[in-house]
Design a protein around this nucleic acid. Structure first.
Lengths: 355, 355
DNA sequence: GTTCTGGATGTAAGCGCTTTCAGTAACCGC
DNA sequence: GCGGTTACTGAAAGCGCTTACATCCAGAAC
């Protein structure tokens, strides 16, 4: 029989072990009010009198009180943090998006926990599990493809989420982004309009990556409509790295007859292609037109400046954060938001060479 | 007198309001053991019997239990998260560092909360406050300069921290990085060795930024030793952006007589300088040598490839994380760790033009 | 005066874990 | 057989907050 042990505890409560942090109860004592009032003064100041508010404010400043968000999270059942899983942040499209997300969330008092998937859906799923463990109130993902367990896990726990960087009107996931298929299709049409018929494509690694897959399909669509396809051997994948892109480009330049135009899945690849073409003495755009995607800083500054497509990275980040915040507040924003892209014609594209 | 109110609470405990999450007590019930045993089976499996471990493991999988880290943090007084404040992540040196930090922390079971300071020490301080509120167990910062209140706040709460990306043997802060002064000095010496005497510098914004200040001073030191200085009007600051760098470069190119060599604080600026020089018809390196800093991906791929200085970004990130983890485990790693840099001589530098 | 309001405040019950402490059982050496 | 380990296990006390509920007290309405 478990009987009440006579615990001889010192009546003086020991300062939080291992830390000399000030707790809310200290503030309450200092301000001469209850802990409830302190909590209210801090979180819902409109519910307390001017006196209490001022006393609490003064005590907080005097003691240097800092709230303990784990305790808040436990008691209020909201952690005020959002999790984001991106392929990598070492790639400016994503880091720009993440910065935009962070900024918007900060305004709303949320913190952002960032995890990277390394372009692996498996790893993405694991990272979401970890974020859930961390008690995030919402999740932001990249792209349309995700492990089915992922959405299930999120829905089971009623955690709102948004996918960013892709668009799917009828898709299963809420999203804020642009239509990768349509964007790349417009670029292919642009090349066709310039008279190009022998077209190749330098793509990213398509495994697990809907954006790449959509862009490849998008490029193909208008070609097929014109009774064409990529030149044989003219679809090559490469990691997003200038050196690797140059290697891939080597293979493309060895094709005979040579393509007269090259669609790249992004500007890093286009840059590598451009460098390699120049190194091989292939004139751009006289002999070969090259297009990029993303409109990176350097795209407009290299010689010749790269024809590319502007992608609304910060807008997507902000939009995704916005949509998530709305869901968190119980509203129902549109399931899918489509953002525009624009072709920016510059110096790496020109009419197809005669013959 | 507060008397015991007869609370008519339903004996059936309501499932966690607003969420149907499984709690540790559910696992305990399912496994037929106490919550203490479940906690031990999960955190210190070596302390429980094989039977308990297996039963708990089975229950966890069956129920899809996910730990509640806010509750863990509250009870254990450790949040298992680290905070990092970097100027921006939209700049590959920092994003590479952050990725390395994240990777190392993940191995150790820590999550990373990232905040950006936008190169403002004031904002850095605010961000650290927020991180503290979030209960981070440690903090990673960038650089040597910080608001004095920052270290005070951290020390008061006994939160370990490390500064990354700079090195200061006798400095007040623990750090892992390289010597910006020495690195840039070696670059200046390299130019002097090539016979350059009229040298200019394209720097970043030096306000609040010790790395830029150290690099400027580092460049100046060997010049002064040789009885020289930057050419008059030859020290210009620019944000890290190719377009702005080109604008700044315009002013440098207008100097008469023109400098024969230009030290850039990083590769983005060097790239802008190179583009602008080419646009103005200034031959690189025949008429003008240009050096970068950081060894970005594109530096070796442009034409001519940029002479630069390799900076150990991932190593610094990993090292900073490592050092922090050691402190967290009660060890005392060296206060300052110096990492090496290397000059990588490429095509943008050559002997000073005669006359 | 009495009864209602309703705003401001306090009380105390958790939130879901970890961890201390006590208890139990099995085992050891003598 | 006995004291002393050793190896597990469970009960329960918090961790520092939020919040449902009770209370109190003016002032309004009657």
């Amino acid at each position: 029989m478990p009987l009440m042990r006579a615990r001889t505890r010192s009546p003086i409560r020991r300062r939080r072990a291992g830390s000399n942090a000030i707790a809310l109860s200290d503030v309450a004592r200092a301000a001469g009010v209850s802990t409830a009032s302190v909590s209210r003064a801090l979180n819902t100041p409109e519910l307390v009198s001017e006196n209490v508010r001022a006393a609490v404010q003064a005590a907080v400043t005097r003691l240097g009180y800092i709230r303990h968000s784990a305790a808040r999270a436990l008691a209020s059942r909201r952690s005020m943090t959002i999790g984001a899983v991106v392929p990598t942040i070492a790639y400016s499209i994503f880091s720009a998006g993440v910065e935009a997300i962070e900024r918007r969330l900060e305004e709303a008092g949320y913190a952002l926990l960032i995890a990277t998937s390394d372009y692996s859906l498996e790893r993405e799923l694991r990272q979401v599990r970890i974020l859930l463990e961390r008690g995030v109130d919402g999740v932001i993902l990249v792209g349309r493809y995700h492990r089915p367990e992922l959405a299930r896990m999120l829905q089971e726990r009623a955690i709102p989420y948004v996918c960013q960087g892709a668009y799917e009107a009828e898709g299963p996931h809420p999203c804020v982004g642009f239509d990768n298929h349509a964007a790349m299709a417009s670029m292919a049409e642009y090349l066709l309009g310039l008279g190009h018929r022998r077209i190749a494509m330098l793509a990213g690694i398509s495994a697990d990556n809907d954006r790449v897959i959509d862009r490849i399909a998008g490029a193909r669509a208008p070609l097929n409509r014109a009774g064409l396809d990529f030149v044989p051997g003219g679809l090559v994948e490469s990691r997003y790295d200038v050196a690797e892109a140059r290697l891939a480009m080597k293979r493309l330049l060895a094709l005979r007859p040579r393509p007269t135009a090259l669609l790249c899945v992004n500007d890093v690849l286009a840059l590598g292609a451009l460098f390699e073409a120049r190194a091989e003495g292939v004139a751009v755009p006289a002999e070969l037109s090259i297009t990029g995607f993303d409109d990176f800083d350097f795209a407009r500054n290299v010689e010749p400046p790269i024809t590319t497509l502007r992608v609304p990275a910060p807008e997507m980040g902000r939009g995704a954060a916005e949509q998530l915040l709305q869901r968190l507040m119980g509203q129902s924003p549109p399931q899918a938001t489509l953002l525009p892209t624009t072709i920016i014609a510059r110096g790496t594209t020109g009419p197809a060479p005669a013959g």
